[in-house]
Design a protein around this nucleic acid. Structure first.
Ligand code: SF4
Ligand code: SF4
Lengths: 145, 145
DNA sequence: ATATTTTAAGACATAATAGTATTAAATCTT
DNA sequence: AAGATTTAATACTATTATGTCTTAAAATAT
């Protein structure tokens, strides 16, 4: 059940690493993140560039440089990251992917799919990086191998 | 939110077309299906070959040939098709796709993901082709463009 | 028997995703 | 100012997913 692309999974894991492991606003070395989470450095860098250009992260070059959250972790939600890295219509095009689908012309799986999809979307919409970071520390959840 | 591969979506739509449009056990021309559902004939044929070899379909060549369900539509469930066309571990490897994950070493999204996943799996596990076919006819649901 | 229809099988082509490498630009240290 | 560090940007390669085409095999019809 592969729902998210690698790029998106990496982005989420990396952001959660930052908020759970580092003091707020701190610049974190991308090399460190890629090492800790076992993600390709260059690939992660590319993913971060999207987030930086979108204003989720800010970056700083040179020694002691890195990336840091550009906004308070309370104001960044998982759905924002997903929409950036998977495309804005991520929660629109669904299971059978018929053209012009929806309530008006539903496919056979519409009824039981649409509710689960909406519920899932709501979870991502309301889960902030701050919340998730706190939970990770509280419950000692893992982000890598 | 792309969950299923094209191959799997085509397979599902095609099987649902057979059970909803044709008398039970009838052999249906693949060309007709591909035309009605606007699916590439050759691609659909390849997908059907998997289902045939797995004993979901039986096939017959030559004039008036085609494919037909090899078992009663009551005994074939959507999850069977999904497992065949997406791989048997489809409902196992999930959101962040960490190695060796699960209850013992959960990732941050485990809690809210695992329940939705299980619910969804249950829907597919209990939805038979017969049920779906009946619903399609009853509610005039669509399988194609 | 021969030609026609239809699925089976596999080769081939294209596109999307994932991963790697190179060079450039910014910042720091000395 | 010079060199080291680190992200940015771009180009390149590899893998997978998707789609097309060709040939073979089975069955029918004439
Ligand atoms: S579940 Fe609804 S919105 Fe999704 S493909 Fe089916 S008809 Fe369209
Ligand atoms: S949700 Fe649970 S099973 Fe899925 S990747 Fe996270 S830890 Fe593993």
């Amino acid at each position: 059940m592969k729902v998210l692309s690698k790029s998106c999974v990496y982005g989420l894991r990396a952001l959660l690493y930052i908020v759970s492991e580092k003091p707020r606003g701190a610049f974190v070395n991308i090399g460190e993140i890629s090492e800790q989470l076992n993600i390709s450095f260059h690939f992660l860098t590319k993913t971060f560039q999207v987030l930086t250009q979108a204003g989720i992260l800010q970056s700083y070059r040179g020694p002691n440089g890195g990336v840091a959250l550009a906004r308070p972790a309370e104001e960044v939600f998982l759905i924002d990251i997903i929409h950036l890295l998977e495309g804005p219509g991520f929660f629109d095009n669904c299971l059978l992917g018929l053209a012009g689908c929806g309530e008006a012309a539903p496919c056979p799986v519409h009824d039981f799919w649409i509710s689960h999809k909406a519920a899932l979307k709501e979870e991502f919409r309301t889960a902030s990086l701050a919340q998730m970071g706190a939970r990770i520390n509280m419950k000692k959840l893992r982000l890598g191998p």
